[in-house]
């Protein structure tokens, strides 16, 4: 009881410190945005897609495959955030966890349970990669909600690679684990014999559509939300006193986007688990 009370008083102290730090960051962001608005010309020139542009961080040269770009920066920040939460946050290795350790443990437990429940116990060797994909999408999505940031997950180049990695791995795992019986995934034995070839064709098409829907869902949701935010923000910039309405709209959509950021990461991960389940247990 004594240790618990000292613990809580400690966290309150550091909590106050953190509040001040957050306040300073928020102030810096507001000042930065105010500074940016000066450079905007007056008049309605909404370019909602400009935020997705990939450009070199240093200089104006062409974007080669190795050029550090804004995509590099925000992916790197995602890596950094994940390292801070998952490594520094768990540095205490406390039996009674701190807040950050608790968050890391919750994320771990959440995805681990999802993999175990959806894909089964034999899918646990693939848990580190699934957790990697989940954390990357989650943190990229959340970091993309910082104004003037860049959202890697809004790019189909990124999401297609994520989805293809899952698709190819799952297909390979399916054939390695089950051999030719993996093809029974497409042969629906519960259907009448006449329908089975037709269903097989449909199943096969749906199987190959998986990576498309898997990737476009994520990129589409993130891109659409951010574009709408930018459109509302553009309206707010030119409507004078009536800007209150688009600003309220921006706030509302921002709240929705926070939700979408988490949900899309969740959906991507759970679909990965479902596909993995098909590869490991094609008969069910």
């Amino acid at each position: 009881m004594a240790t618990e009370s000292t613990n809580s008083s400690n966290t309150t102290k550091s909590g106050n410190g953190r509040m001040i730090a957050f306040g300073l960051i928020a102030l810096a962001v507001v000042l930065y945005i105010l500074g940016l608005t000066d450079s905007y010309e007056s008049g309605l020139s909404i370019k909602p897609m400009d935020q997705f542009a990939v450009y070199p961080l240093f200089g104006d040269g062409p974007v080669r495959w190795y050029t550090p770009t804004n995509a590099t920066l925000w992916m790197g920040l995602a890596v950094l955030s994940i390292a801070v939460l998952m490594v520094m946050g768990t540095g205490g290795r406390a039996v009674i966890p701190s807040r950050s350790q608790s968050m890391a443990e919750l994320a771990y437990g959440f995805i681990r349970k999802m993999v175990e429940d959806v894909a089964g116990k034999d899918a646990l060797p693939y848990f580190p990669y699934i957790f990697t994909a989940f954390l990357f999408i989650l943190f990229a999505n959340f970091l993309a909600l910082i104004p003037t940031s860049f959202s890697p997950t809004s790019h189909i180049a990124v999401t297609v690679i994520l989805a293809l990695t899952v698709f190819i791995s799952v297909t390979v795992i399916g054939f390695v684990k089950n051999g030719a019986t993996f093809l029974s995934l497409f042969w629906v034995t519960s259907a009448p014999l006449v329908l089975r070839p037709i269903l097989a064709v449909i199943e096969l098409i749906s199987y190959f559509v998986r990576p498309v829907s898997h990737s476009v869902r994520l990129a589409g949701a993130v891109m659409a939300g951010h574009a709408v935010l930018k459109v509302f923000a553009g309206f707010a910039g030119v409507m004078g006193a009536a800007s209150v309405a688009p600003i309220i709209g921006v706030i509302a959509i921002y709240g929705l986007e926070v939700l979408v950021a988490a949900i899309q990461a969740y959906v991507f991960t759970i679909l990965t688990c479902v596909y993995l389940k098909d590869a490991l247990h094609p008969h069910h």
């Binding site: 770009t69 994940i82 998952m86 994909a133 890697p152 180049a157």
Partner: peptide, 22 residues
């Protein structure tokens, strides 16, 4: 460019997780 940096990112996260965090 994006694919290259994504792969680098994923490998970095994978190693941070599988070697230290998990």
């Amino acid at each position: 460019n994006q694919i290259f940096w994504l792969v680098v990112t994923l490998i970095a996260i994978y190693f941070i997780l599988s070697k230290i965090a998990l």
